[in-house]
Every structure is written in C-alpha cells, then in structure tokens.
C-alpha cells in the first residue's frame, strides 16, 4: 500500500508502533526484540523479513455472527472471507486474539458457527467477551466455550514470545449512565498478575470495549480503565488492543499504544458522525472497504496526545 511510512527518522524506534490493517480482518502484530510492532501484511516482502526473527499474532474482533441486518446481511460470510485471508497469509501468525462480540445474540448456533469458521484458521485463539456474548439467560454459553482456565468473569493472562498478554473483561455489571467496567476484583487480580514482572517485559492488554475514553457520549470507554493503565505505567512497552467501535483508532501516550481493530461484520460511524453508534449502512460496493482493505499510517508525535485515525476506505 502506498503511504505506508516507517516514520523512523529521529524518532525512537522503540516507541514507534506502526500499524497497517489488512483486509478488514485484523491487525498483524509482530514482536521483534521483545517489542510489539504492527505489521502491514499487504506488503508481503516486508512481512516476510520482519516476521522472521520475532513472533507475530493477529487480532480479530466483532464478528457478530448472527447479524443479518441491512448493514451486512451475511456477517458469517464476511467472517469466512476474513479467515480465508488469514489462511492466505505468507507468514503464519503464532496465534490470534479475538476481542469480543463473537456472536450477535449469544445463541448457541451463533457460537457454533463462529467456532466452525474461526477454527479453519488452525490458529490458537485467545478470546475475551463482548457484551453481545453474554446475552443468553444463564450467561453460560461463552463461559462453557472460552472460560476454561480463566478467572472471575473470564479474565486471564499468558506469555508468548517474551510478551505478557492480559485478557480483560469490561462488559459485565455496567452501571447506568456509565461506560465499560472492570471492577475491583479484576483490578486486584491484575495487580497481582503484574507483581514481580520485570518492567522491561512488554505488556499487551486486550479487552472488548476501549480501555481509554474514545467517546463517552456513545459509551466508548471504560469507567475504571485508567486504574488498569496506572498499573502498567512503569512498563517500558504497553500495547492496548480493543474492539467494540468497529473502526480503527490509535493513540500513543508515552510508552502506551492504544489501538482498536475493525469488525469483520459491519462498520460503525466515527464518533459523533451519526445519530447513534449503530451499524452503518454503506453501499454494497463500499462494505468490504469499510471492513476492508485499508492501511493506517501512523506517525507518533511525541509531544501530543493525539488520536490519529485514517478514514477507512479501500
């Protein structure tokens, strides 16, 4: 893709996280020398080189299996297309994270269909739930499938490629008028989980709703997200990966990079750009561009806290 700029000149490479999304399916991250770096896999030559020494993983989000409204009558189909793209990748990622809203209505058949398609990637998938995954009366379908070995409402951590990954749940016990919620129990667990970790350990936090405040008027943020971020403040490299808002957004604050991934199901409007954050209907020809092929060129301006998002178009 043109316009992909490495932005390396003069800027500490360590702090530069470039990002390029690919085919609306996810963002490929590669870890080189212990530092996560996003990788545009459209540029396959670069991908092949950069992926060689490190570890790479993929983020997929908001598949909303079961969604059949005008914004995308076949969300399962576009998920399948996404998995097809993943399978065609020149460098196979080590694993995938799914940042929630696997299903639209938490129906057993939706979970089953999602699993049937996503498993075709033959990758280990580390899930966190979205609010759409906890809608069944007994709130058990997600937990039965993905809750094994997790704590509380489904949070957990694991290590891969020298990086410490922490999956958080911020879609439970939401308070009227509020935003996403982690809660005291999870925050205490997080503190415990980080205890004794070397500050040079790269940290990846992932959760469904953005842990940073994107747009509170639409509930796009996490009430006590700041308390989680405080706990990782001392770490040299922190990457926060979220979904929920069905569009790419990125911000860098000190050593922390915040990033949201696209949905594989339907786009949502930019903050405040529509009457509501509901599914955005675009012309059929544009849909895959909105989920789809677009790159994010990201240059960090160290002096400013800025959200830099690039319009999503093919």
């Amino acid at each position: 893709m043109s316009g992909h700029d490495h932005g390396g000149d003069g800027v500490s490479r360590r702090k530069v996280l470039e990002c390029m999304t690919w085919a609306g399916t996810g963002v490929l991250w590669t870890v080189t020398g212990g530092v996560p770096r996003s990788l545009g896999i459209i540029d396959s030559a670069q991908a092949a080189t950069a992926a060689a020494p490190g570890m790479s993983f993929l983020q997929i989000s908001d598949s909303h299996v079961g969604f059949d409204k005008p914004a995308n009558p076949n969300a399962l189909g576009t998920l399948e297309e996404a998995v097809g793209k993943i399978n065609a990748m020149p460098a196979k990622p080590s694993f995938m994270i799914h940042t929630g809203d696997i299903t639209h209505l938490s129906k057993a058949a939706e979970f089953d269909n999602a699993e049937r398609i996503i498993s075709q990637s033959k990758l280990d998938v580390h899930y966190v739930p979205g609010e759409h995954d906890f809608l069944d009366e007994e709130v058990k379908l997600y937990r039965e499938r993905y809750g094994r070995g997790t704590k509380g409402q489904g949070w957990y951590s694991f290590d891969a490629g020298g990086v410490h990954f922490i999956g958080l749940v911020n879609v439970v016990d939401l308070k009227a008028g509020g935003l996403g919620n982690l809660g005291a129990e999870q925050l205490a667990w997080l503190q415990d989980d980080l205890r004794g970790k070397s500050k040079s350990t790269p940290i990846v936090l992932f959760a469904h709703i953005p842990l940073w405040t994107v747009y509170p008027e639409w509930g796009w943020g996490t009430e006590d997200g700041g308390r989680a971020l405080e706990q990782v403040k001392g770490f040299g490299s922190v990457t926060v990966l979220n979904g929920h808002i069905h569009q790419v957004m990125q911000k860098v604050e000190g050593n922390v990079t915040f990033h949201t991934a696209r949905s594989t199901a339907f786009p949502q409007p930019a903050p405040g750009a529509a009457a509501s954050p509901g599914p955005m209907k675009v012309e059929d020809a544009r849909l895959r561009g909105m989920l789809g092929v677009a790159s994010i060129n990201f240059k960090q301006n160290e002096q400013r806290l800025a959200i830099i998002d690039t319009p999503l178009q093919g």
Partner: peptide, 26 residues
C-alpha cells in the same frame, strides 16, 4: 429488533432505568 417489553407500574415513585448493554442509554 422490534422486540417489546411491557411493565405495569402499580406503585408511585421515580423509576430510573437504563440499557445494561449500552449504559449511557438512560
């Protein structure tokens, strides 16, 4: 979409409510 929910209010008082999925909806 198009589903309904009904509740009969038998007692006086103020009833604040919200959407538990989108808590900014009150």
């Amino acid at each position: 979409t198009d589903d309904k929910f009904s509740f009969t209010f038998t007692n006086a008082g103020d009833y604040k409510y919200f959407c538990s999925l989108h808590p900014h909806m009150t």
